[in-house]
């Protein structure tokens, strides 16, 4: 497991844990970000926000949020 932030470009991971406060979790839940979903990194420049693909959607996640999402790399 590692924070989403450390997943490289075009890598895929399964969300295992979402740390952080209620507000962040609520927000992520509403957008489909829950434990068990598969996400793919569309863009990770190692600074600035990430772009991830989640289902049909594309989300921008700030560094702070991306550090709170723990994923298991699967490909």
């Amino acid at each position: 497991m590692k924070p989403l932030w450390f997943l490289g470009m075009n890598r895929t991971g399964v969300v295992r844990e979402i740390a952080g406060g209620r507000g962040v979790r609520k927000r992520l839940t509403g957008m489909g970000f829950i434990e068990g979903v598969t996400v793919r990194i569309i863009k990770n420049d190692n600074y600035g926000p990430l772009i991830v693909s989640l289902g049909e959607g594309r989300l921008v996640l700030g560094q702070g949020v991306a550090n709170k999402i723990m994923v298991e790399e699967v490909g």
Binding site: G20, G23, V24, R27, L28, M31, P49, I51, G57, R58, L59, V60, L61, G62, G64, V65
Partner: peptide, 11 residues
Amino acid sequence: EVSPFVLELPP
């Protein structure tokens, strides 16, 4: 307070 930055990129 640092608000989480989560934004949808619509097609």
